[in-house]
């Protein structure tokens, strides 16, 4: 049985698997995917704020729940694409409990990792059974030794809004800095055991920006994405961030450049350059372009009903 500690200060909340809402940790604990001590953040003071700073940016503590974040009136008004994404991910019960920090640092949702029948790089073993098997869910960009795409919808949304990550012991990071290149075999992010993610900062909303989120999956709700995109449209600040296609949340700079150049929906075609797929995952290349296209179409013609 794992020991659980309940520190009261941030500086004590290190050296172990951190637990806030517990929605990922408790699942992995039960299925033998966690060894060693747990550090529960329940009694740690702070990290629960959602504060607008004088410049219009917002700081959100790591313990803020996704439900609170997504329904906050300031967040909804300033970063609607982000609020949509966070308000639509997982299920209502999960969003009530899961936190900013947990959502960003959750472990992979790869079916092989979550099944007790396998061992892999990320579960303390070696190798990637998914690579040798069905490629349906695999990354189509920059797959490392682990081929699973990054699981965090929140991270995709934060990437689309140039959010910064605040980490004790590490300072202020961009989203790409938090996740690195996705090539580490055994972990999904770059924070070390003595570093603590304490919150995120959203830069002030850009005037005139429109933004949205689109997830493509088979079922209507409560399903991990095949591909999902968060897009912000504003001249000089076009952002196209996508999940489900790479081991890290990924920006599509060529699509952004095409949008800046005024290309409109057709810019989506720029997304697929460099995609590496095989027969099992080639549909994802098509779906990537079409997901971006569909969301662009919606954002560029806002009067049209959303699909």
């Amino acid at each position: 049985m794992s020991e659980v500690r309940y520190p009261t200060t941030q500086s004590q909340a290190v050296w172990g698997q951190r637990r806030a809402g517990g929605t990922d940790v408790m699942d992995r604990l039960r299925h033998g995917r966690i060894a060693g001590a747990l550090v529960d953040l329940r009694d740690v003071a702070g990290m629960e704020g959602l504060v607008v700073l004088p410049d219009g940016s917002v700081e959100v503590g790591t313990k803020v729940t996704l439900a609170r974040f997504a329904t906050d009136a300031k967040v909804r008004a300033g970063w609607p694409g982000l609020a949509d994404a966070v308000g639509g991910l997982a299920t209502p019960q999960i969003r009530q409990v899961a936190t900013i920090g947990g959502s960003l640092l959750q472990r992979t949702r790869c079916a092989w990792f979550r099944s007790p029948d396998f061992s892999c790089h990320k579960s303390g073993g070696s190798g990637c059974p998914a690579l040798a098997a069905d490629h349906h869910w695999n990354s189509i960009f920059g797959a490392g030794p682990c081929v699973a795409p990054h699981p965090s919808t929140l991270a995709v949304a934060l990437l689309a809004f140039d959010a910064l990550i605040l980490a004790d012991g590490r300072g202020t990071l961009t989203v790409p800095e938090l996740y690195g290149d996705g090539q580490a075999a055994d972990r999904e992010h770059t924070l070390t055991d003595e570093q603590l993610l304490v919150g995120v900062r959203l830069p002030p909303p850009l005037p005139g920006a429109v933004s949205g989120w689109l997830r493509t999956a088979a079922r209507a709700r409560a399903e991990w994405p095949l591909v999902e995109a968060v897009i912000r449209l504003v001249p000089g600040g076009m952002r196209v961030a996508v999940g489900g296609v790479a081991p890290v949340p990924m920006r599509f700079l060529a699509v952004e450049a095409a949008l800046e150049a005024g290309e409109g929906v057709g810019a989506a075609a720029q997304a697929v350059a460099g995609a590496a797929s095989n027969p099992g995952s080639s549909y994802k290349v098509m779906l990537l372009q079409r997901t971006i296209e569909t969301l662009l179409e919606r954002l560029l013609t806002p009067q049209k009903a959303a699909p």
Binding site: W112, R114, S115, D117, F118, P129, A133
Partner: peptide
């Protein structure tokens, strides 16, 4: 899993 026969769809997600 086509190689090991392990259950990949092992939960309700």
């Amino acid at each position: 899993d086509p190689n090991t026969g392990g259950l990949v769809s092992a939960n309700l997600e």
